[in-house]
Amino acid sequence: MLTLENIHAGYGATTILQDVSLDVQPGEVVTIVGANGAGKTTTLRAIAGQITPTSGHIYFEGRDITKLAAHDVVDLGITMIPEGRQLFPDMTVRDNLLLGAFRSGARSVQNETLDYVLDLFPRVSERLDQMASSLSGGEQQMVAIARGMMAKPRLLMFDEPSLGLAPIIVEQVFEVVKKVAASGATVLIVEQNVFTTLQSADRGYVLENGEIALSDTAEALLSNDHVRRAYLGI
């Protein structure tokens, strides 16, 4: 479904990603884990069209999307739920959700999608007419995910969904991620929270200093010595 081939990317003179290749199959939950600054977010931003790789190719359902503008990537059905929620603070939750359905493929069915999404997130439906900025961190993360779902994405990408949330909320977030995956969406998650993420994923890639250091099934990674040493301090 999604394939990255030898991607090099960075900001200005700084190269962050070096020769990153990975793929995501339809219906899979794939995760990219790694430390802060390893290049996880940069990978997602390259896929989302927010930065253009200096070399390499990105294919989505057979189409080369390497140089596509961000809004065109969204139109193809790739939606990213950004790090730190990034809601529209001075808008109601409802307006936030409706903006989620802005892409051409989702606009015409936005009311049906809204019903479906609110079913999935009952807590969000209680907050529809509140300003987004008045929600707690956990609620905001739920709205951000719900907003991502509103786009009826073919591929849903999560950037650090657990960031800044209490562990108990993190657990709920990953429950939701599982629900999303169960509904048939393909999911790509980037996380620092290595264990929790690998527990909810099918496959994983370990990114270190902008390079793919390991890739395997989630189970295999969980018992990998290097992963245990580097990310758990054991």
Binding site: D75, M91, R103
Partner: peptide
């Protein structure tokens, strides 16, 4: 709505496909 979205959060607006 799209204009207000861009004004409030440019990055997020882009992620919505605006």
């Amino acid at each position: 709505l799209a204009i207000r979205a861009v004004a409030q959060n440019r990055t997020a607006a882009q992620l919505m496909g605006i």
